[in-house]
Design a binder for these strands. Structure first.
Lengths: 291, 291
DNA sequence: GAGGTTGTGAACCCCCTGTTACCGAGGCAG
DNA sequence: CTGCCTCGGTAACAGGGGGTTCACAACCTC
């Protein structure tokens, strides 16, 4: 999808986000900790003076600012875990509009503000319709830009789901968001981060069928590319670990042509394991010990 | 053959390079696919010319506009069930700021746009910090105001929990969008995705005759090729499953030369089965056994 | 009764999903 | 710095379900 993007230098990574406490959880867009993590702001602009002044205000506010050289591919934007994006369309030339559309389509959850020079009503309307959240004309006061970013981020937060349950219980499973882990009794499923985000999303919507695109959007944070099989593969990994930890239950059900549904269901003793055929519980145990 | 390779592109859609645009518009995973209820907009403004022009655009968009005389109490705003509020601070005089703060504090979920005359950066920042979502300077183009309202509402929607879609009830049928399935009682009709999309469309327009072309356009997502019988075939599949699950009812009616109409109708006891003629229940059983 | 329209059944083939293997990136320890 | 390990993501293959198509029967309207 980013095949045509011009080579862009990506300066070193922002502070390493130690997987423990992500400041912006991949899944549900709401921060479960009411604590507002420092906002990560990226700016695509060439005006060094403006950038400097803005940077001062941004830091004063406790946010983090990163300057991007140009049309950074969507994947790299995702990797930056941004809280907001400011774009000066003029630095991108003719491709600016296409880029804006691309960003807003792939990352609808990312607050995006266009901050450019003189413009027409038609241009502003176009940008807003493409998915931009705001258009602020240059020259502008950096404080107004910041206030507008705040307003947009606030709007997203207000609508976000109220609060995160401490632990989701389903069948034999216990899904603990504070641990980023799922358990059967006291035993950990040893889920990776992605696996956990996936099962939390599914279990959080237990009983409802979730489409692949929706799952991808909410777990990965951006739109699923056509033909991407990641969701399937991760469902398989999840099922494997679930099967190992809780063989008497089935949790994730496939809906052909649609997606997946989470619903804990106890399986008949005879078919506890797909490999077990009609083994009894005793034989099952023996089988398990052999492995 | 056209399941994933539509021979005809949807007119009006932008280039498909973005890999994001679903080439299969089946589900309503996209926000606009979910039918958005008409937005209820309230305007506190005294400029009748502006109000008139805005009203025209608002109606053209299918929204509803309500002009408020002044500082309406919060309770009345709540009663109006607004989708957005536009305020010209100048008509409220000195109390405007206090009112704005009051509104934004009491109704943080209500998108609020200040649309006033000349202003300073400090004023705009103040309004935004008080909780306003945007500030648009007059004179302004009504289309830009509308686009900004859309952007704010959209931002709230993106973060909002997936709206609960109520089940459609018709005859013995219950069509549940969250399950991508139809039920009679608790028993699933076991519809495939296409079948479900079709019955949801038909049932959603119950009582109205839908032309084949329109059905195809909305279920398959692109124009129907001449001579395509897919709709007929799927109607037949649907009727078959409906007949099996709910034999006492007829749901889909053919309009020769036009299309189909969904309308639950109880059938007389005698003609429960199309094969049964006027046989009694007992004869029916015998007849059935003979086959 | 003629001609176009719709119902019906079945065959074919493509796409969707499960599954496995592989590769690259990044973290960690030596 | 280097090698190992984990993790995420992609590619490839197999199998089966479902969508499309076709042919023919039944039907409706003029």
């Amino acid at each position: 999808m980013a095949a045509s993007q011009p080579p862009v230098r990506l300066p070193g990574t922002m502070h390493s986000t130690t997987a423990v406490a992500p400041d912006r959880p991949l899944g549900d867009s709401n921060p479960q900790g009411a604590r507002t993590a420092p906002l990560r702001l990226a700016v695509i602009d060439g005006d060094s003076g403006f950038l400097h002044v803005l940077d001062k205000r941004v830091r004063a506010r406790g946010w983090q600012q990163r300057v991007l050289a140009g049309a950074v591919p969507v994947e790299e934007l995702v990797a930056l875990r941004l809280g907001a994006l400011v774009i000066d369309l003029s630095v991108l030339g003719a491709s600016g509009w296409a880029y804006l559309e691309q960003i807003c389509t792939a990352l609808p959850a990312l607050p995006t503000i266009v901050c450019s020079g003189p413009s027409t009503v038609a241009q502003r309307v176009r940008a807003l319709r493409l998915g931009a959240d705001d258009w602020l004309a240059k020259p502008c006061h950096p404080e107004e830009l910041i206030a507008r970013i705040e307003a947009i981020v606030r709007r997203g937060r207000v609508a976000a789901p109220p609060a995160e349950r401490p632990a989701l219980e389903a069948g034999e499973l216990s899904i603990r968001s504070d641990q980023f882990q799922a358990f059967v009794g006291t035993r950990s499923l040893d889920l990776t981060r992605r696996e956990f985000e996936l099962i939390r999303l599914l279990a959080g919507n237990a009983g409802h069928v979730l489409e692949r695109e929706a799952i991808y959007q909410r777990v990965w944070g951006y739109a699923m590319a056509h033909g991407d099989r990641s969701v399937d593969v991760f469902v398989r990994k999840l099922r494997q670990k679930l099967e190992r930890a809780s063989p008497q239950w089935r949790y994730i059900h496939t809906h052909f042509g649609v997606g997946y549904r989470f619903a804990p269901e106890r399986v008949d003793a005879g078919e506890a394991s797909s490999m077990a055929g009609e083994l009894t519980a005793g034989e099952l145990t023996a089988e398990h010990l052999l492995q």
